[in-house]
Amino acid sequence: MTVKTAFKNGVLIAYLGGEIDHHTARLMRETIDGEAEMQKPRILTLDFSKVRFMDSSGIGLIMGRCRMMSLLGGKVRLENIPPNIEKIIALSGVRSITG
């Protein structure tokens, strides 16, 4: 599990990597929220290109970040969703609350 963040022009990008489950989602959440609190981004981009596995804990992670960003008056974007996690993203309907 890895999270790298980059901030530029009001956009915070979190590059997620490895496996997202209930165990690793907590650490990802802490890293992302800590960074968002400092930078106060307008847009939080979650980049999934290096995610090899994700269960519904990842959906919880996305939903929670949407709540957090709406408090900051911003939005969440999902990028580079690999085919293997597309199925759970589609099932959850989480795209209806993200850009």
């Binding site: 989602a25 959440r29 269960d55 519904s56 804990s57 959906i59 919880g60 992670l61 939903m63 929670g64 759970i88 099932l91 959850s92």
Partner: peptide
Amino acid sequence: GERAGLGFAV
């Protein structure tokens, strides 16, 4: 908290 409540649906 951060549970999506989707476990059984998945």
